[in-house]
Design a binder for these strands. Sequence first.
DNA 1: ATGACTGTTCCGAACAGA
Length: 267
Amino acid sequence: MKIATWNVNSIRARAERVEEWLDRSDVDVLAIQETKAQEKNFPYEIFDFMGYEVAHFGLSQWNGVAIASRVGLEDVERTFAGQPSFAKPGDTPVQEARAIGATCAGVRIWSLYIPNGRGLEDPHMAYKLEWLKELRSNVDSWLSADAQAQFALVGDWNVAPYDHDVWDIDYFREHQMTHVSEPERDAFFAFMNKSGLSDVVRPFTEGEYTYWDYTKLRFPKNEGMRIDFQLYSPALTQRVKSAHIDREERKGKGASDHTPVVVEIAD
DNA sequence: ATGACTGTTCCGAACAGA
């Protein structure tokens, strides 16, 4: 079984590319982030046509996550327990469309779009860190209920865990950029070090990126970042056969700025 | 080429991404 995650940066703008990619990638489950669509605008027909069931969670033109599967799609959950809300001062707090879970062929899949911290001192950074903390508390409760649980947390984590996960760490430090700060990295590594999950893609793809900014010719120069991950529970990690990052999909006109990350597990 | 982006909203400037 193949499980993929892909931040598509608008499902409507990317409809044709998503359909073509599903056709050639032969994945069984695709976790999607940044659909940028409300429910009524989601192009369900693409997935019907390609033989996938799909569950979407979208509240506005921002965020939006989905899971498409051709091996079953059960027990869909929108938001995780205790998922933090965000509100601008004076506005009503809202749980944003950043997490959707479903069980596909016995594997619990979560498609996740971790908040962008925006700036090291920005209120969104505290939101991001709290969001990761609450997510990990769910992981701990799932594993304490069943140490053999098979689940996958996949998506756009908006964290570059190691210095070599960005093209030039000095550039990031000089510009006081997010994604590489110690608190963000601590929050990310806690999923491995404290909760026992595994980044199952890195061993097969070290040195590769998953994202390249549209500006400044970042892709042709291969000035990218590794920020999209698949983190698996211990029992699911045992089933991993291989993984790859589909750099080809970033090429050409009309590509997303992120590219798909694919894992194959034993049936 | 001495700079070079993409998307949504409801028609053009604001916002967001990272």
